[in-house]
Design a protein around this nucleic acid. Structure first.
Lengths: 392, 392
DNA sequence: TCACTTCCTTCGACTACAAAACTAAGTCAG
DNA sequence: CTGACTTAGTTTTGTAGTCGAAGGAAGTGA
């Protein structure tokens, strides 16, 4: 006798899921939703009506007939910049205004100086969010409720206790330790603010846009720093302390083992992060100023830079091999600025295939995160949307 | 604003949970259940009645008053050996008959020879299950329905595709590759048979008996082989292919790197498993015949054996460090025959604390699996019980 | 003996969902 | 162009699960 697993999601057919189906284009009519969700047509009608009255859904005329009455098309109100999102990085921040479907309405990249401290940095970014949301033509045109800001999601490049919104001993954010981001922001905007780690947000964004049908996924963010986000049973896995996915200080074999900002040596971050590559190249006498320079060198086929990228790829692969064996995900995707670095990717892949159980890699997808520079804010927006369309 | 996470379990107050509360002794009366589950007294009464009529619960007279009417005590029908369980090991199998609360009613350890092949081994073990269940005094006394066998759970010391019940390229089970355990057993017993990896069953058993209030846990089984079981959000995490937790072939630093049965060298299993310790000691000229001998040597303080145990502990700790950083569990517990080996445990602990993020180890429990030799069959029984008390 | 507590059940109401019947609006064959 | 059929969506009605209030059962303690 064969036992199939418990249903993937007890929230089956919840308003959130209906909304997502419409947002992703999987469903266009009430009938579609009924088929997809397994709910009866009457129930779907009822729910849809509720969503419409909340301004979360709208009717957009009749669709094409498939041999019978034409469907009344549904859509998530688009163009309404109602969710703010900030994806804070080491040197830049991506700030955006997104609509309820998680689509980017308007976004900008701003230079930031983390070392200026949280008040200054976050203050400026929140102001930019307000500008982006406020400059919404739809809102200024009709000024109705659907155009109003519903929440702000913020991604931080360091450890965040999601539950409290507090930052805990970040390695590259001087002056931010213990800062309560959520509380600070709550004083500046009067909508819910959700704070999470940047890798988690990338994971959420990438999963929702590219792998929403997969249950278990791991996303690596390799930029200036290195981190990962975990999707388990379709949901973000944050772990006991909210530090799940933080593989930056796992030890890897490297000779000599480069010292890490954390005080140890041979950490993944000290070998495979963008910052590490910059440092290593400089020590070899190569004059690079930042990660962009390193990537250019690699693209140009520079021998030293390429060798370092390979080493970085092996290091990532080494850690990822343990993760894949242990967690057995359906997909491993790599994002961040180093994701476009072919030598790194290639040696990561090779190491992974070499060191994993055949069973674990047999159907494993190893990909690049597709969604580009907006994955982070997309993930942040999804977090907010999930919270706005609250219960189940 | 602080956002609390989604409710841990949408199945809140399901019949399964009620049953578990009674089984664990957390609840004795309907009133207890109402308080624990948050359901209204009327709903609880209704559910309890249903469970009683299914024979899954029974009333056992009145309890002690707490200042008012005396509670009508509830209990899971005990003494009824209604679930069969087999925990197959490399040289021995633990076979048991358990009641609906997951308590062991009767159990035996049998020697097995894996190399005799699945038909022979499983045939004998199933026969033993029948004997243990059949010799139930309660069943023969009143012969009523509650005494009837409801299902059999089987743990296999190798990779199992839980969904199909098939064994996939096990490293130490010649003749078992591709064997469909579930189908074979289905032909011999007329109740559901559930097959899973032995480490998964240990994890389930240990979690249910000792850590049921924790969401995320990792259990290491270190015996002849080495494996792990993962609890994520309170549920067994099996991963995409059902191979999650199989860390036996993760590479660790070891010099020289001992060859592994899988063809590679330096696998965790080749360094830290019981089989590896036996092999290594023999190569050093120490005459040991099996794992029991090794453990005796270690307990006696033998220098060579202890050194190997330390090395094994470091190797486990090394892998576990990555796992803890990545998964951020609330507890890591070690079971299996090597769990009682102090030097191994000590160096595992040390390595873990040295290599993990402080945030991840700050509140991390590192323990020995408490439940003893019956954890496996207990886990198997729980799997069956969960399936019998089917939906939510 | 009486007030009060605890335990549990009964009953009416509410909610979520579904099934069935129905309306609406189309296609297509003859 | 007409009538049979299809698809889409609504309305009505029914059912199952849950809760709250009320009350009965069975105790304690002043």
């Amino acid at each position: 006798m064969t036992i199939d697993d418990a249903p993937r999601d007890a929230l089956r057919g919840g308003p959130r899921e209906l909304l997502r189906w419409v947002a992703t284009g999987a469903a266009v009519s009430r009938a579609d939703l009924s088929r997809l969700s397994g709910l009866s047509p009457s129930t779907v009608s009822q729910r849809v009506e509720a969503l419409i009255s909340q301004g979360l859904l709208e009717e957009t005329g009749a669709g094409r007939s498939r041999g019978g009455r034409r469907p009344r098309q549904l859509a998530v109100p688009t163009g309404g910049a109602v969710v703010g999102a900030i994806d804070l990085g080491a040197h830049h921040a991506r700030v955006g205004a997104l609509d309820l479907s998680g689509r980017v309405v308007r976004a900008r990249t701003l230079p930031v100086r983390i070392e200026d401290g949280p008040e200054s940095v976050l203050g400026a970014l929140l102001a930019e969010v307000a500008t982006l949301v406020g400059s919404d033509p739809a809102a200024s045109a009709d000024g109705s409720a659907p155009g109003a800001l519903r929440g702000v999601g913020i991604g931080i490049p360091g450890p965040v206790q999601h539950a409290t919104g507090r930052i805990v001993s970040p390695s590259r954010m001087p002056g931010w330790n213990g800062f309560d981001v959520a509380a600070f922001c709550a004083g500046r905007v009067d909508v819910p603010v959700i704070v999470d780690n940047d890798a988690n947000l990338m994971a959420l964004g990438a999963h929702r846009t590219a792998h929403s049908e997969l249950d278990h996924a791991v996303y690596i963010k390799a930029g200036t720093g290195i981190g990962s986000g975990v999707i388990s049973s379709g949901r973000l896995h944050r772990g006991a302390q909210g530090s799940a996915g933080d593989i930056s200080h796992c030890r890897v074999v490297a000779d000599p083992a480069p010292p890490c900002t954390c005080g140890n040596a041979g950490c993944l971050e000290a070998v495979a992060s963008g910052a590490a590559l910059v440092t290593a190249l400089r020590e070899q006498g190569v004059p690079v100023s930042d990660l962009t320079g390193v990537i250019r060198l690699i693209d140009d086929g520079d021998r030293q830079a390429t060798a370092l990228a390979r080493q970085a790829g092996r290091a990532v692969g080494e850690i990822l091999a343990v993760v894949v064996n242990f967690f057995n995900p359906q997909v491993v995707a790599i994002g961040g600025r180093l994701a476009d670095c072919e030598p790194l990717l290639a040696s990561m892949r090779a190491t992974l295939y070499e060191r994993c159980l055949p069973l674990a890699t047999q159907t494993l997808l190893i990909e690049r995160v597709a969604a580009g520079q907006d994955v982070g804010i997309t993930g942040a927006a999804h977090l907010v949307i999930d919270h706005v369309v609250a219960p189940a």
